[in-house]
């Protein structure tokens, strides 16, 4: 098994107990290490493509079905969807589709209908209810805590803390968490850092320490791929069991170079996340004990408030498709990237 065995455990000294910062709630990014990244310049070609997509969705007569069933009722885009259809959002879809306009429009349409069906759009269909979903997170199997060096929010996935049987609510929970993580992205950041911990935990409420069934994982990944493109900034794995490790080793040479860059296996997390932002379980300084009663309501409330605030700024800047997330998320009063701003010139 020499081929597939891991490198010897890196034994970094445990951080001093009294340095630990006691935290039990989600916290926003306070002091940013570097100023928020401005939007990149586009080439002429890219810009014209962007405009093509934008004009497609700007069409007043555009209606979309309220669910993935194409025969269901059709509605025009509402303001929350317009808010979601930001400049960066269109960039992401274009980039994910390799700047193919037709594909990007198709993917965006798919996602819009999917969001309507999944209850992620306010005002259309039944919304995802945080109180219902909250049960899934009672053991804290999915937690958003801290930011990495690139100011991306860190999304901890610990499937060793599974507390429920596989169900649709689990999938909804994951979608809900992903959606909220995206909301927590600070200005100039539109991706997240996912930390996957395969460690088996023991504790009250934990009924299983196994990874979810492959088919569900596949379904979730598919949804992620289709509806959250370019949202993954970095993926960190830890405590990988040997069989997954063997699989990864085998697959590694065939991975896409971009993906390779994003994926990190069993490396010390301090390399990627500021210890002050990192859970002490992974040699960070944050002494985080998950308490559902404390974390969950606060998390829901904070993200909701953030969302509301961004939406208000969206309305303030005109409430149309193609406004920049950079503007919503900042605190400045003047619009930096108006809808008709020429991205080839800045």
């Amino acid at each position: 098994m020499g081929l597939f065995s891991k490198k010897a455990e890196l034994n970094t000294p445990n951080t001093n107990k009294d340095q630990l910062i006691k935290i039990d709630q989600v916290f926003p990014l306070t002091n940013r290490s570097h100023p928020p990244k401005r939007l990149r310049k586009l080439t002429e070609e890219q810009f014209s493509k962007y405009n093509e997509v934008l004009s497609h969705f700007k069409d007043e007569s555009l209606t979309l079905p309220i669910s993935t069933d194409p025969s269901s009722d059709k509605l025009p885009l509402n303001s929350w969807e317009m808010f979601w259809l930001s400049r960066e959002c269109i960039y992401r879809y274009l980039k994910a589709q390799k700047w193919n306009v037709a594909n990007a429009i198709k993917a965006l349409t798919n996602t819009l209908t999917w969001r309507r069906e999944s209850g992620l759009v306010k005002g259309i269909n039944k919304q995802l209810d945080p109180n219902e979903i909250g049960i899934e997170n009672e053991t804290g199997k999915e937690v958003i805590l801290g930011y990495d060096y690139s100011d991306r929010p860190v999304f901890y996935m610990r499937n060793g803390r599974q507390n429920t049987e596989s169900s649709f609510r689990q999938v909804q929970h994951l979608i809900f968490m992903a959606e909220r993580t995206v909301m927590l992205c600070p200005q100039g950041v539109d991706s997240m850092s996912v930390l996957v911990d395969f460690k088996k935990y023991k504790g009250p409420g934990i009924i299983s320490d196994k990874a979810p069934p492959v088919s569900i994982a596949k379904a979730c990944l598919g949804a992620f791929e289709n509806h959250y493109p370019e949202r993954l900034g970095r993926m960190l794995f830890t405590n990988i069991p040997w069989f997954i490790w063997a699989f990864i080793k085998l697959m590694y040479p065939f991975l896409d170079p971009d993906t390779k860059e994003k994926v990190v296996f069993d490396e010390p997390f301090e390399k990627y996340v500021d210890p002050k932002q990192l859970d002490s379980l992974y040699n960070g300084l944050v002494d985080f004990q998950y308490s559902h009663k404390l974390y969950w309501p606060d998390f829901v409330e904070k993200t909701e408030a953030l969302y509301q605030k961004q939406y208000e700024r969206f309305v303030k800047f005109g409430g149309v498709i193609g406004l920049s997330e950079f503007d919503f998320k900042g605190d400045h009063d003047e619009m930096i990237y108006p809808v008709d701003c020429d991205m080839t010139k800045i």
């Binding site: 596989s166 169900s167 649709f168 689990q170 999938v171 069934p213 088919s215 569900i216 596949k218």
Partner: peptide, 22 residues
Amino acid sequence: FDFVEVILFLEKLGSFTTEDTL
């Protein structure tokens, strides 16, 4: 059966994709 239950059931039967379930 909801979405996930169908997926899980189909997994027991053989190899199906998410598209099949959809």
